[in-house]
Design a protein around this nucleic acid. Structure first.
Length: 267
DNA sequence: CTCAGTGTTCAGTG
DNA sequence: TCACTGAACACTGA
């Protein structure tokens, strides 16, 4: 479930440890894959990467990009099921590998995706071109002050959950984080954003900071998330689902996504 | 066999 | 022009 913490921990940090400061000896990309779009053929991608040194690995929201010693620079998006892998032997290549790099220390780095929502793009100036330039502030690195939230929410009629999912508003929040934050902040997800009062907006902002911050501190290791988090109970749409405190969980569609929420707690 | 799903994009509506 | 909604995308696993 790649939302901001998963992309940060299983994506950017993994890539930084594996490839930052290293050079790409050879590159392979699966032919005829939609993973490589925007006019970037597998050939163009491998050409752009071969022989390059990776200077840094970045992330904003759920988008990642690498700065190479020479452009264009690759952008990576996990979609629903993408992942990175770093390994010593070609035999350890993950199933569904779409791109594989051989590095100058003899190791291998792969981008894999069992489905086809993951994407790799090439950009000359990533931060100043779409999709990065269209993103709102990063929910982890650049979480705006509560005054900004109050100002922004005041002119939005959309359900607060739908707004949290809007990447041009705030980058990185996905379905489970949106539900978790609404639950912990005690706000019903379908409430129009503009109807939240100042205290609720502040609670929302504070909760967002805590949930995203803790998830990243814990390396997006779900087993370390507190028992009381809705996260552990929200999967599977079980109509008998209860929170750790014994509260009934309802499932509705808000912002076009399945939404787990607790009517007894969220107003 | 059917169906829901972690995300994004795009056409269409008001 | 803008805010917003809902379908489509592709595939796996329950």
């Amino acid at each position: 479930m790649p939302e901001l913490p998963e992309v940060e921990c299983w994506g950017r940090r993994v890539a930084e440890r594996a490839v930052a400061g290293r050079s790409v000896v050879s590159a392979w990309a699966k032919a005829d894959e939609r993973i490589v779009i925007d006019g970037v053929s597998p050939r163009k991608l491998t050409t752009a990467l071969t022989g390059r040194r990776v200077d840094a690995c970045h992330r904003r929201g759920k988008q990642m990009w690498w700065t190479l010693d020479r452009g264009p620079h690759p952008l990576w998006h996990f979609g629903m099921t993408g992942s990175f892998a770093h390994y010593r032997e070609p035999t350890e290549r993950p199933a569904f590998a779409k791109v594989e790099l051989e590095l100058d220390d003899g190791s291998f780095f792969a981008f894999a995706d069992p489905r086809r929502f993951g994407r790799v793009k090439l950009r000359d100036d990533p931060p100043n071109q779409p999709p990065l330039s269209e993103l709102g502030p990063d929910a982890y690195l650049d979480l705006p002050p509560w005054a900004w939230f109050i100002q922004q929410l005041a002119r939005r009629r959309t359900p607060i959950k739908a707004l949290l999912l809007n990447q041009s508003f705030l980058a990185g929040v996905g379905n489970w984080i949106a539900d978790e934050v609404c639950y912990q902040a005690k706000i019903a997800p379908q409430r129009p954003a503009a109807e939240l009062n100042d205290a609720e907006v502040r609670a929302l902002r504070r909760t967002l900071k805590r949930v995203v911050g803790k998830a990243c501190d814990w390396e997006a290791d779900y087993t370390r998330f507190p028992r009381t988090w809705l996260f552990h109970r929200r999967w599977g749409k079980n109509t008998d689902a209860l929170t750790a405190r014994g509260e009934e969980i309802d499932f509705d569609v808000v912002g076009g996504r399945t939404t787990a929420w607790v009517p007894k707690v969220q107003r």
